[in-house]
Nucleic acid binder design. Structure first.
Lengths: 223, 223
DNA sequence: TGACATGTCAAACAAATGTTTTAATTATTT
DNA sequence: AAATAATTAAAACATTTGTTTGACATGTCA
C-alpha cells in the first residue's frame, strides 16, 4: 500500500487508455444506453470485468470519457490558436470561430468528441454539469470578452450576451443539423480543411458586420 | 371479416390514440431505448401487452409516433405565415424567424414534437427522409428566396446559401443547446411570448445587418 | 340466447446486460 | 527466490425489459 502510486503496474494505464478510446467510439456511435460494456471491452481487447475494475461502473466511465475527449480536443485545437492576448479582437474572434469549427469537424482519432457533446445536448447526463463549469464556461467568457471589445459594450450588456450566442450558434449548426443539411444539400457540408476555413471566414465576416452595426454609435442599424 | 372496418370496436381507436400520445411524451423524454413499454402503457392506462397488440412492436410504434407528431405539428402551425408574397423581404424575414421560434418554443400538448426532431438529428431513422422533403425543404426554399432578395444575389449563389443557414442556425440554437445555455445562464432562456419576440428581433437585426454588409456594392465589409 | 370475434389483462418467458465473484496470472518488493 | 500486491479472465448472478401466452371480458351477429 505504501508504494502503491509509484509502483503502478506496467499495463494498467494502457488498459485504462484503451478502454477510454474504445468507449469513446462506442458511446458516440450508439449513445450511452445502447453502448454495451461487452462491446467496449471487446474493442479494447479487455475482459468484460475491466470496466468495473478500472472505473467502478459504466456511468463513471462515461463521465471520464467526456472529460478525456474534451481535454484531447482542446489540447489539439486551443481556442486562441496561438494568438497573443492583446491581439485585436477581430482576429481573436476569427481564431475562436476557426478553432471551434476545427474541433467540431475534426476527423482525427478523437472525432467522437463532437458526437458525444451532441448527445449531451439532447439527453444531458450528470457529466454535463462539471463539463459546463470546467470547460465551456471559461471558453464562453473568452468569447464574451472578445464580443464586448468589438461592440464597445460592457460584459453584462444583454446585446453582448445575445451576439455571443449568435456567433456560437452558427458554428455548431452544421454539426447538430448534419442529417438535415446532408439531405437538403449533400454537397455543401464542410469536409476538408479548406471548406472549414472558408466557413470560418463567412461566420466571422457575417458576425463582425452584424456586431459593428448593432453597437452604439453605428450609423447602420439593420432594417 | 366482411364488416370489420365498420364494426370497429368501441375503444380500439381510443386506446391506440392514448398509446400514441403517451409514447410521444415518453420517447421525447427519454429517447427510444430508455423508453420502456411498461411506462408508456402505464401512462396510457393500458396493459403491457397493448403496444404489441396494436402496433406489433416497439419500433413500429416509434415510427407511427413520428408520423403522428408530424401531422399534429403541421396542423397547428401551417407552413403559410400569413404575410403576402409581395411584402418587403425584410418583413418576411422577420416573420420567418419569429414563426420558427414560436414553433420551436411551443409549450403546447405536442411540444415533444421538437424533441423528437432533435433526436432524429443525432440518430436519424427512416422517418427523417420524408420529413425533410415534405416539410423542411419547402420552408428552406422560402427562406432562400427572401435572403436572395435582400442580398440582391441569385438563388444559387453560395453566399445566399451560407447566410440562409446563418439565420436558421441562430433560431434553432437555443433549442438544440438548451441544456448548456440553461446551465450557463439559467435566467436567459426565452420563456414567454415577450422574450421570444425580443429574440426574434435580435436575430432579424443581427442577420439583416450582416447580409446587407456582405452583399455586393456595400461599403462596409466586416473586418 | 348462444357462438364468434375482438380487446384487455395478469403472468410468464427469453434474451440482453451491468455487475460481482473467485480463481489464475503477472509484476513488484523484500 | 519467495511473498505480496495488482491485474486479468471466465463464469455466474441479478435485474431489466420486449414479447408472448392463455384466460377472461365484452360487444356483435346468427
Amino acid at each position: 500500500m505504501k508504494s502503491r502510486t509509484r509502483s503502478a503496474p506496467r499495463s494498467h494505464d494502457e488498459t485504462r487508455r484503451q478502454l477510454l478510446e474504445a468507449s469513446g467510439e462506442v458511446f458516440a456511435e450508439t449513445g450511452f444506453r445502447d453502448a454495451t460494456v461487452r462491446e467496449i471491452c471487446r474493442r479494447a481487447g479487455a475482459n468484460v470485468a475491466a470496466v468495473n475494475y478500472h472505473f467502478g461502473d459504466k456511468e463513471t466511465l462515461y463521465v471520464e470519457v467526456l472529460r478525456y475527449a474534451h481535454g484531447k480536443a482542446l489540447e489539439k485545437y486551443p481556442p486562441s490558436m496561438g494568438l497573443p492576448e492583446n491581439a485585436p479582437p477581430e482576429k481573436r474572434l476569427h481564431a475562436f470561430i476557426h478553432s471551434l469549427l476545427l474541433r467540431i469537424f475534426d476527423k482525427g482519432p478523437y472525432s467522437w468528441h463532437g458526437k458525444l457533446m451532441s448527445r449531451e445536448m439532447i439527453e444531458p447526463t450528470g457529466a454535463l454539469d462539471s463539463l459546463v463549469e470546467e470547460r465551456i464556461r471559461p471558453m464562453s467568457a473568452q468569447l464574451w470578452k472578445i464580443v464586448s471589445e468589438i461592440m464597445d459594450l460592457p460584459l453584462n450588456d444583454q446585446r453582448v450576451w445575445q451576439c455571443g450566442f449568435s456567433v456560437v450558434s452558427q458554428c455548431v449548426f452544421f454539426h447538430h443539423c448534419r442529417p438535415v443539411v446532408t439531405r437538403l444539400f449533400p454537397k455543401q457540408l464542410p469536409q476538408d480543411a479548406a471548406s472549414i476555413k472558408q466557413l470560418a471566414e463567412h461566420i466571422t465576416t457575417f458576425s463582425l458586420a452584424a456586431m459593428k452595426s448593432i453597437r452604439p454609435g453605428s450609423k447602420r442599424k439593420g432594417l
